[in-house]
C-alpha cells in the first residue's frame, strides 16, 4: 500500500518542484538573457548592424581583443608555473600560497582598481618615477592590462592543479630517466595530460578578461575611442540614453558568453569521456 501512494505523490511533487525551479530560473536568468537579444533586434537587423559599425564600438571591440590577447598568454604562463609549484611540491606555506592565489576572487574589482591607482597613479608609489620617465600607466592601456590580469590570475592554476595532482609524477619521472629535458617533458608529457584542464582555464580567463568591468572602469578613465572596452561602452551608451547601441554591443558580449558556455560544455563532456576510458 505505502509504496504506491509514495510514487503517486512523487509525480505530483516532482512536477511542482520542476515547475518551481524553471519559474525561478526564468525570472532571474532566462527572461533577462532573452531580453538582450529582443532589445537589440527590436528595430531589425539593419539597426543592429548599423550600431556595430560605429567607430566608438569598433575601437572598444578592438581594445577588448587587444587586452585579451595580452593578458591571457601572460596568465597562462603564470598559471602553469603556479600550478606546477603547488601540485608538484610540498613546502611550508603551501596552503597559504593557495589562499593567496584566491585573493583576486574575493576582492571587489573596484578595490583592485583602487590598488592599481594607488600604486601607479600620480600620487601613487611609482607615480613620480613614471611621470619622470614619461610612462603613462593609469588611465591608459597598461593599467587596464594590470587590472584584467589581477582579476583573472587564479583561473588557470585552479583548473590545472587538480589535474596535475591526479595524474601523479610517474610518467614525468619515466621520461626523465629516459633522458628527456625539462622542456621535452613539459611539451610531450605534462601538457598533453593537463590539456583539458588548461583549456577550461583558458576559456574562463578569456571570458572574464573580455567581460571585466569594475576594475577596468576604475583605471581606464573611460576615454571614448581610446581606453574604452566593450563593457565600458555598454554602460556609457546606456547612460547616454542610447540603449539601442548598448544592447547591440551587449549582443556581441552575450555571444561571447554563449561561445564560452558551449566550449565549457564540450570540455566538460570530453573530460567525462576521458574519465570513463
Amino acid at each position: 500500500m505505502k509504496p504506491k501512494t509514495a510514487t503517486e505523490e512523487k509525480v505530483w511533487v516532482k512536477l511542482v518542484l520542476i515547475g518551481g525551479a524553471i519559474a525561478y530560473l526564468a525570472l532571474v536568468l532566462f527572461l533577462p538573457a532573452l531580453n538582450v537579444f529582443l532589445q537589440a533586434f527590436k528595430f531589425g537587423l539593419g539597426a543592429f548592424f548599423h550600431h556595430l559599425t560605429e567607430p566608438a564600438f569598433l575601437s572598444a571591440a578592438r581594445l577588448t581583443v587587444i587586452i585579451a590577447l595580452i593578458v591571457v598568454p601572460i596568465n597562462t604562463v603564470f598559471g602553469l608555473c603556479a600550478a606546477w609549484v603547488i601540485a608538484r611540491n610540498q613546502f611550508p606555506g603551501r596552503t597559504l600560497l593557495i589562499s593567496i592565489l584566491d585573493i583576486p576572487f574575493a576582492v571587489s574589482p573596484v578595490v583592485t582598481g583602487l590598488m592599481i591607482v594607488l600604486l601607479y597613479g600620480l600620487n601613487g608609489w611609482f607615480g613620480r618615477f613614471l611621470e619622470a620617465v614619461n610612462i603613462k600607466i593609469v588611465f591608459a592601456l597598461p593599467a587596464m592590462i594590470f587590472a584584467s590580469a589581477f582579476i583573472t590570475m587564479p583561473f588557470i592554476a585552479r583548473e590545472v592543479i587538480p589535474v596535475l595532482e591526479e595524474a601523479g609524477t610517474d610518467q614525468e619521472e619515466a621520461a626523465k630517466t629516459l633522458g628527456a629535458t625539462d622542456w621535452q617533458i613539459f611539451w610531450s608529457v605534462t601538457l598533453p595530460t593537463i590539456r583539458w584542464g588548461l583549456l577550461y582555464g583558458l576559456i574562463l580567463t578569456n571570458a572574464r578578461v573580455m567581460g571585466e568591468f569594475g576594475a577596468v572602469s576604475v583605471v581606464s578613465g573611460n576615454i571614448i575611442g581610446k581606453t574604452q572596452t566593450l563593457p565600458l561602452f555598454v554602460e556609457d551608451a546606456y547612460k547616454a540614453y542610447e540603449s539601442q547601441a548598448a544592447f547591440s554591443a551587449s549582443v556581441v558580449l552575450a555571444g561571447l558568453a554563449l561561445v564560452t558556455l558551449v566550449l565549457k560544455e564540450i570540455v566538460e563532456r570530453k573530460t567525462q569521456i576521458k574519465d570513463v576510458e
Binding site: 536568468l29 538573457a33 567581460g211 558580449l253 561571447l256 558568453a257 558556455l261
Partner: peptide, 24 residues
C-alpha cells in the same frame, strides 16, 4: 540546456547583466 545555462552569470559580462535587468 538548462543545466548548461546555469553558468551564464559566470560567462555574461556584468555590465550586460545590469543593462538587461534594468530593462526587464
Amino acid at each position: 540546456f538548462i543545466d548548461a545555462a546555469i553558468d551564464l552569470p559566470f560567462a555574461l559580462p556584468t555590465a550586460v547583466a545590469g543593462l538587461t535587468l534594468a530593462t526587464v
